[in-house]
Design a protein around this nucleic acid. Structure first.
Length: 659
RNA sequence: GCCGCAGUAGCUCAGUGGUAGAGCGCACCCUUGGUAAGGGUGAGGUCGGGAGUUCAAUCCUCCCCUGCGGCACCA
């Protein structure tokens, strides 16, 4: 047998027989490492201790101290242990796939009966038994025929399909946990007892399509989370609780921001407090857009299908549109439905996007190259018939308003406009409290229109623009629209979640379809490019993100109720009114709380309601003409004179662009 | 849209084959209290909608609507 050379992280090398396993390597280094080893990294790949090493390689042995590998193995082993537990309890269940994901794993099963939450406890208990049995994990590489024959015999049709899908040349690995067997690419731990028995939890059950394909059967997916020890699990469960407290649906109710009801699914009824946030944010964006060279417009919401046919939406997007039929023969009268005649019925659609309407504005009057770039912005109210299962609070809705704009420009202007936009967006994200964002650059897809030269040019322009602004980007090859490449902007919130908000898309297609043109310097009519772009995306969704990002404690300038002036004794009522009048005169959203309640009660209620400042006034304040200031989230109060507090709040309540 | 779960007072939830309860909130009264819930009294519900089974349905069955968790979707 020939020798191979292994190189270790410290630079040492070792000559070993070809086909040696990482387990043997670890034991050769030291008995203790042999015992502690859980897996290895061999030439960059995560390796099972049982797999043979066939050629010269760099090798690092992992122990439970290596979080990344340890967690992957623990979670992956638990996926299999769970599948085994399920099949031991319900032998008729068919197994499919069970990958590691997020903070745990999931495994998809095919079973007639639905799993119930009570079943989860039963499965967990069986899993603990399997862990305590410390069953050895064993692996073999099988031939495709052997594997298929095996799974046909054991009645596992999904596994047969999986085996068939493994590319030629890749090993087909079989794993055993005790007597239970599964197809798996590995790696795994060496026995089930290496998995901590008290640091995992099955969290929920949900439906999931086989292979993610909505035309394939719906399977039952069981999710679990797992960590290295009980404390990490507890910490994660606490974090989930914290995240639940930030839920914008809950805070929206508690803060009196908005409600939704079943007569208008996916649409928001904004209450005074919520609408204050909305308009404050909109005013801010409007100022930014004006400063950024945009012209604000407004276009119709109910538009004849002819325009949607011309734009291509009727063909490609109709299922997502609200269609409105109007019998024009009615002429305002109450007519019998039977009187409706087809020739008098006009079919309209609520606009799902603003772009076709913006082209109509562009098309009015003859445009010169001197007019370009022309930046048309609209707070465009759109309606999309989103699938019922997609709706989620105010984050995913059927009626929403975009901070939309379309830039009409020449091909040569794309790069400059793109760079301008990235700076524009970065500025707004920073001012709104999201300094970190990521750019994803989606390039030409397989199915596309336009010449290769044109794609080359436009993609180059976007790439140069990103570089000019000094940002990094992630390339997403093939993810662009059929008509052009795009940039998507993902911001990171306070608890590390990422949200796609901004977008920038190059579109030569719609101007073509809707026959937009301008007269160039050569006196000829040319086609402009159209750049679709948004910063916030939709106000509804962005406000949802803001609420969750701040856990409801919005910065003062966005807070709907900025100050409550609370009387401690009713003899201070008049003074409280005077304080509120002064604050309001300074442009601050202030109100009194003169109710017959103790100050404790008022402080609690307004704290729960996320009011940024409570100014308490008793007879001491009346006599000294001061206020007692309590800032949200702080136990400590401080005194201030009337002038001081007005000044301080006015400064803090100034929107970031006006400071 | 698909799978599963849920819908009872404004909110959070308990409950029963014989038309319903709690806490908070709300109204009124007492209380004027110094920084996260003072006390009392009271009002408030066709138990999501429709059909069926039954002497009788909020409860059982079916259909629908909406919500929640995922999946799919997000030209």
């Amino acid at each position: 047998m020939s020798q191979i050379t292994l190189t270790f992280p410290d630079g040492n090398t070792r000559e070993v027989p070809q086909g040696i396993t990482p387990a043997q390597v670890a034991s050769d280094i030291s008995t203790s490492l042999g015992k502690k080893a859980i897996s290895a990294t061999v030439n960059g790949a995560h390796f099972d201790l049982q797999w043979p090493i066939e050629k010269d390689a760099s090798v690092a042995i992992h122990t439970m101290q290596d979080d990344e590998q340890a967690l992957e193995l623990i979670r992956h082993d638990l996926a299999h242990i769970m599948a085994r537990a399920v099949q031991e309890i319900w032998p008729e269940v068919k197994v499919t796939i069970g990958p590691v994901r997020d903070y745990g794993w999931f495994y998809d099963f095919d079973r007639e009966e639905p799993f119930t939450p009570e079943d989860l406890g039963r499965i967990e208990a069986r899993m603990k038994e399997i862990i305590n049995a410390r069953d050895a994990v064993r692996t073999e590489v099988w031939s495709r025929d052997q594997a298929i024959a095996h799974y046909e015999k054991t009645g596992e049709p999904y596994k047969v399909e999986l085996v068939n899908r493994i590319p030629e040349g890749e090993p087909i690995r079989m794993y055993w946990h005790g007597d239970w067997q599964d197809l798996c690419r590995g790696p795994h731990l060496q026995h089930t007892g290496q998995v901590p028995a008290d640091a995992f939890k099955l969290t929920h059950i949900a439906g999931a399509y086989w292979l993610g394909d909505s035309s394939r059967p719906m399977l039952q997916r069981i999710y679990g989370i797992a960590f290295k020890n009980r404390n990490d699990l507890k910490a994660h469960l606490n974090m989930l609780e914290e995240a639940a407290k930030r839920d914008h649906r809950k805070l929206g109710r508690e803060m009196g921001l908005f409600h939704m009801q079943e007569e208008a699914p996916g649409q928001v009824f904004w209450h005074p407090n919520g609408w204050t946030i909305y308009t404050t944010l909109q005013d801010y964006v409007r100022r930014k857009q004006r400063a950024g060279g945009y012209n604000e417009i407004n276009t119709p919401q109910v538009v004849d299908r002819k325009l949607w046919e011309a734009s291509g939406h009727w063909e490609k997007y109709q299922h997502h549109m609200f269609i409105v039929e109007v019998d024009e023969s009615r002429d305002g009268e109450h007519d019998d439905a039977a009187a409706k005649s087809r020739e008098h019925t006009r079919i309209n659609a609520l606009k799902p996007m603003n772009c076709p309407c913006h082209v109509q504005v562009f098309n009015q009057g003859l445009k010169s190259y001197r007019d370009l770039p022309l930046r048309l912005a609209e707070f465009g109210s759109c309606a999309r018939f989103e699938p019922s299962g997609a709706l989620h609070g105010i984050m995913r809705v059927r009626g929403f308003t975009q901070d939309d704009a379309h830039i009409f420009c020449t091909e040569e202007q794309i790069q400059e406009e793109c760079a301008r936009f990235i700076d524009f967006l970065a500025d707004i994200y920073r001012e709104l409290g999201f300094p970190e964002f990521e750019i994803r650059f989606a390039t030409r897809p397989e199915k596309r229109v336009g010449t290769e030269e044109s794609w080359d040019y436009v993609e180059g322009a976007l790439e140069n623009a990103i570089k000019a602004t000094g940002h990094d980007y992630v390339l997403e090859p093939g993810d662009g629209a059929f008509y052009g490449p795009k940039l998507d902007f993902y911001l990171t919130d306070a608890i590390g979640r990422v949200w796609q908000c901004g977008t920038f898309q190059v579109d030569p297609n719609l101007p073509e379809r809707l026959d937009a043109g301008y007269i160039a310097a050569d006196g000829e009519r040319h086609r402009p490019f159209m750049l679709h772009r948004a910063v916030l995306g939709s106000f509804e969704r962005f406000i949802g993100i803001l609420i969750e990002n701040h856990a409801g404690k919005l910065p003062l300038w966005l807070a709907p109720r900025q100050v409550v002036v609370a009387a401690i004794v009713s003899d201070a009522d008049d003074y409280c009114r005077e304080v509120v009048a002064k604050l309001q005169a300074a442009g601050i959203r202030a109100e009194t709380d003169l109710r017959n309640e103790k100050i404790n009660y008022k402080v609690r209620e307004h704290s729960v309601g996320k009011v940024p400042y409570i100014l308490a006034c008793g007879m001491k304040e009346v006599e000294e003409r001061t206020v007692s200031v309590r800032k949200l989230g702080e136990k400590q109060t401080s005194g201030a004179t009337l002038d001081e507090i007005v000044d301080r709040l006015r400064t803090e309540a100034t929107p970031p662009d006006q400071r």
